[in-house]
Simulated scan of single mutants.
Amino acid sequence: MLCQLSYRGDRHHPRRRGARPPSVVGPTVELVTTTAAPRALTPASAAFAIASLAHLVSLLPGMPEALNLATKAAIVPLLTAAVLAAVPGRRPPALLLAALGASFAGDLLLMLPDAFLGGVACFLVAQALYLSLLLPRTTGRPLLLPVALYLAAFAGLLALLGPSLGALLPALAVYGAVLCAMGAVAARGGLVLALGGASFVVSDALLAVAKFVPGWDRSAVHIVTMATYCAAQALLAWGVLRLDLRRARTAGRSAG
């Protein structure tokens, strides 16, 4: 937010305009507030898009594992750089940066063979941070329909995956509940956030199905999983920045 001071001195004196003298004599200072829109196209956002596409290519059969690991590790850091570049001169919400940091840690752990629950824990933190970020920004908007839809999706996933989860059922049920709560709250924040929340739910649902349901561990499923994941992170970040811009402009008009 850029604040500009405008000085009004003798040239605005009421005696020169034949107006009624003010109650307070002397120069006045007027605060003019302008808010620049977030920038979508930056070198960082282009790098994020390229890394995301390269990662999807790496999921095709026969592609080297090193490309898969390198591109996956680059996705969230490049998105974080894009978020910082989108609002030059201003700091993005700390909760957004923290959610991206937790997601990055989750990505790294999920690349390890025996760290699945650690990755789930990191993404649970990320979903809780997104939820904390979105709740105050969407308060007062209808929530009943999104909650009903996500409850139905959550119940369907539990019915599908429950028999295959075994001892992991409690942990994954908690994660699914927080994830669906985030999706429901995001749905009342406008189209961009709604798509971001829904994409995250679809991505994690496909990840779980590919891991636990026989016959679903296929290249096409993994490509859709990561495509919706990249889209979810970008849409949530962009949606929050746009929502904050609208709130700032509304506050500026109210103050004026």
Rank of each mutant, 00 (worst) to 15 (best):
L2P: 01
R11K: 09
P14A: 15
R20M: 13
P22T: 13
G26P: 04
T34R: 15
T34N: 11
P38E: 02
R39S: 08
A40W: 01
T42F: 04
T42M: 07
A46Y: 04
F48I: 14
I50A: 06
S52C: 04
A54T: 09
S58Q: 05
P61C: 11
A66L: 10
L67Y: 03
I75S: 05
V76N: 01
L79C: 05
T80R: 14
A82I: 03
L84A: 08
G89R: 05
R90A: 15
S103M: 06
F104W: 07
D107S: 08
L109E: 08
L110V: 14
D114W: 09
A115E: 13
F116M: 15
A121H: 08
C122V: 14
C122I: 07
C122S: 15
F123V: 11
F123C: 11
V125P: 03
V125W: 00
T138D: 01
P142I: 00
P142M: 05
P142V: 00
L144D: 08
L145H: 05
L151S: 12
A152V: 07
G156A: 10
P163F: 05
G166V: 15
P170E: 15
A171R: 09
A177R: 10
V178H: 00
A181I: 00
A184C: 07
A186Q: 02
G189S: 08
G189L: 06
L191E: 11
A194K: 07
G197I: 01
V201R: 02
D204H: 08
A205K: 07
K211R: 15
K211V: 06
G215F: 11
W216G: 13
R218E: 10
V224L: 10
A227Q: 04
C230K: 02
A232R: 10
A232S: 11
L235M: 13
L236C: 06
W238Y: 09
R242H: 07
L245T: 10
T250D: 15
G252L: 09
G252W: 02
R253N: 12
S254I: 15
S254P: 01
A255L: 14
G256D: 09
